[in-house]
Amino acid sequence: MSHMSIPKTYKLFIGGKFPRSESGRVYDVHGPKGVFLANVAQASRKDARDAVVAARSAQSGWAGATAYNRGQVLYRIAEMLDGRTEQFVAEIRSVTGASDKVARAEVHAAVDMWVWYAGWADKYAQIAGNANPVSGPFFNLSVPEPTGVVVSVASQDTAYSLIGLVSAIAPAIVTGNTVVVIANEAAPLAALSFAEVVSTSDVPGGVINILTGSAAEIMPWLASHADVNALDLAAASGLSTVEWEKAAADTLTRIVRPRAAFTSLSVDRIDALVETKTIWHTKSLA
């Protein structure tokens, strides 16, 4: 007996739930030969704001989790992703027409990226912070802390629909930031299936929020949003980011500018999304 397939409804991922766009809008996604693949939710301004609210309410709890715990959650993502390798290979291939070998390599790289960042969770503070030998009877320590809510634009190059998404999320959340990420518009299927991985990986709701749709439409609202602490535009080359950067200046939102090699494993990606807190305390025998 042949089995009639059950196509998945691809929805947004906000606050640990899978809502449709409040706008009711979808856009259709096609494969390389124009074959219809899915009606994907097209996020609106309101969805973006909801995602920021979800990210904000999850932030202090995620930052307050122990680094060991965050590391295990990131590693769990790697485990869940690895177990779904075949699904992601198929989804990547369906959108881009990539060879099995190329698609598989991307999934493996994405898994390895999670493992790499997972290991940083309980080590990063040791390389980014230090004691400061001040001239006086004081204990003085500088430590990295998450910047807060990060809005990240995943690569819009369809050749990076999964690894581009992961490189837009992992360096932010490893230190305790929460993220709202704009997925690859033309190749969103891997991003939305990745939300299912997140959903089953002990990631608290709101830590990772994934929006599909047009970065050009959504980003102006997120860039000017007063409750957003950083814009990660590392993978946004090719998009017009100048107006977003100007809007972000109004609340001194931190900006990571577009750069090459945004998928490389780099501590610099973590550095860009933390603050340094310096704590002084008096010393005395009294």
């Binding site: 001040v134 003085n140 500088s142 910047t147 001194l252 340094t276 807190k277 310096t278 704590i279 305390h281």
Partner: peptide
Amino acid sequence: GVIWANTFNKFDPASPFGGYKESGYGREGG
């Protein structure tokens, strides 16, 4: 960015100084 516990307004070239949020970005010192 700077927390002074049982002291206040202490500065030192070895100690990073700078803000969160709308107090700016980047550190000076250390």
